[in-house]
């Protein structure tokens, strides 16, 4: 997990300046911002727009088109559950229900302790070993309800350690 830092306009500008020369620079810029700050700080939109000579509406439109990007801070861990067919065939629907119930959230929401943000994902390419989930950059296979509970428990401890 990246350690989120408070984004200043200056830090954002440094990243934008580094990448704006690339043809089709917008997605690389957005990825780099999200990798650095864990989300795309809303103040970045105007900065990017000015550098790329586009409107803020255009930048916002691109961010909102792609599921991966978000302009609100996630909880400490982003946990994505695969909803696609190959995982469904191996019990992903049961896992989804279990996850929402035990975490007491719906998709796109964060737990009350701000430890986990739950998101759907459509295929992680590990389709013989579902149900699959992704936590940060780790993909975890054959996740049944018990394994899910253990993973969540581990994440809770990690969260405490970071604090």
């Amino acid at each position: 997990m990246n350690t989120p830092t408070v984004a200043t306009a200056q830090q954002i500008q440094v990243i934008v300046d580094l990448l704006e020369h690339k043809p089709g620079a917008l997605l690389p810029i957005l990825h780099e911002l999200q990798n650095t700050f864990d989300y795309i700080p809303p103040i970045a939109i105007a900065i990017i727009a000015k550098s790329l000579r586009q409107t803020s509406a255009e930048i916002h439109g691109v961010i909102s088109f792609y599921r991966h990007f978000h302009t609100e801070k996630n909880a400490r861990h982003r946990l994505e559950i695969c909803r696609a067919e190959a995982c469904q065939a191996r019990g992903a629907r049961t896992l989804e229900r279990h996850a929402k119930k035990t975490l007491a959230v719906d998709y796109h929401q964060s737990t009350a302790d701000r430890n986990i943000t739950l998101d759907p994902v459509y295929c992680l390419g590990n389709c013989s070993c579902g149900p699959n989930i992704r936590v940060g950059n780790d993909i975890i296979g054959r996740v049944d309800n018990d394994k899910f509970d253990r993973i969540v428990e581990n994440l809770a401890t990690q969260g405490v350690q970071i604090q």
């Binding site: 997605l27 690389p28 957005l30 792609y66 599921r67 459509y122």
Partner: peptide, 8 residues
Amino acid sequence: VRLGAGAY
């Protein structure tokens, strides 16, 4: 390599 962003 250019990275997509979760759009099928």
